[in-house]
Simulated assay, not measured.
Amino acid sequence: MARILTGIQSSGRPHLGNILGAIAPAIELSKDPNNESFFFIADLHSLITIKDGPLREEYVRAIAATWLAFGFDTDRNVFWRQSRVQEHTELAWYLNCFTPFPMLANAHSFKDKSERLADVNAGLFTYPVLQAADILLYDANIVPVGKDQKQHLEMTRDIATALNRQVGQDILVLPDARIDERLMVIPGVDGQKMSKSYNNYIDIFLPEKELRKAVMKIMTDSTPLEEPKNPDTDITFQLYSLIAGEPEVALMRQNYEKGGFGYGHAKQALYEMILEKFSEPRRIFNYYMENTAELEQKLVEGEEKARQIAQETIKKVRKALGYGS
């Protein structure tokens, strides 16, 4: 049985890009009886940028509600908050001591901000090590990642190999990356990768009026309504294609190419498709956001399961490094 691990930072409410690019594919993998899924909320990682405790807690609830809204089975799998299992930080320290400085200095997460070192905290610099601990703590075999995270997974393997070599035994499992090429980049309303940092995302859980307003902000070219349009270069069509079925996408393509179909019509169709496609997830999300005690209970139950596994790994590492028998 393959053990699959996925984490998502609590740095904001999940948006359409998160759902299509990470959450939905991961949940689909979890439904395979040959897989065992470990999904966690990386609320320690989010402290790098989110210092407001109540705000971060609100984001944690939103992320947890999203996973449940899209059908993640918390009875069969493991679902928890990173901060509630202290073994994450303990293993991160051990791994820090096997991680060369140049490796971290070359990490994309650091290099992207290294020109303004005053804005870089130690948490950002050592981010890949905590991420490695998150993965190695649970003997994960497969980690679904985007292309931008592939380097960090390679670093995880290198760090684990260094520790294994030092102690003379393979106590840490080397994980493999799984990259979904089709859903690698989800475009935002401005055409860049959909991201909270770019403020170009679509939150599918917004009330209907706010959701429609967000969809209508999608950038388009100036082609007049009556003229044919190229669907392959249009952001609205790209997003529609990711959530609609083949017959609907084919019809939308015809509408673009024949003319007499404006971008406003396309955006309205996308808005209506979001409401149709995500009707049930929206209902479940709102339920858990209003019934936080039930949400909390599911997380607490998952944290107990995660803690039991994490403690076994830590015992092995402690013994191998001379910190306990």
Rank of each mutant, 00 (worst) to 15 (best):
K113P: 04
T161C: 08
F98G: 03
L47R: 15
N164L: 10
L172A: 05
R84Y: 07
V300L: 15
N34Q: 12
I235A: 10
D119H: 13
P144V: 10
H45Q: 08
G262I: 05
T66A: 01
P33M: 08
E181F: 13
Y256C: 01
G123K: 00
Q297H: 12
L275M: 15
S241Y: 04
L270V: 00
E246I: 11
E181N: 12
I4W: 09
L321A: 08
T313K: 08
K31R: 15
L55K: 12
D148A: 08
S11E: 04
A310L: 10
Y256T: 01
I41Y: 03
P100H: 10
K209V: 15
L29H: 03
T233K: 15
D32T: 05
G12S: 11
Y198R: 07
E303M: 12
M273G: 07
Q149H: 13
P228K: 02
A105F: 03
K150Q: 12
I41E: 02
A42R: 11
L104Y: 08
E301L: 10
G191S: 09
T313H: 08
A177F: 03
D43I: 01
R76V: 05
I314P: 01
G264E: 02
N164Q: 07
L20M: 14
R13S: 11
M289P: 01
G245H: 09
V173H: 15
R56I: 02
D190Y: 13
N96T: 14
R253W: 08
G302W: 00
I274T: 02
N199Y: 12
V85D: 03
G21H: 12
R84K: 14
L55V: 05
A214D: 03
H45V: 04
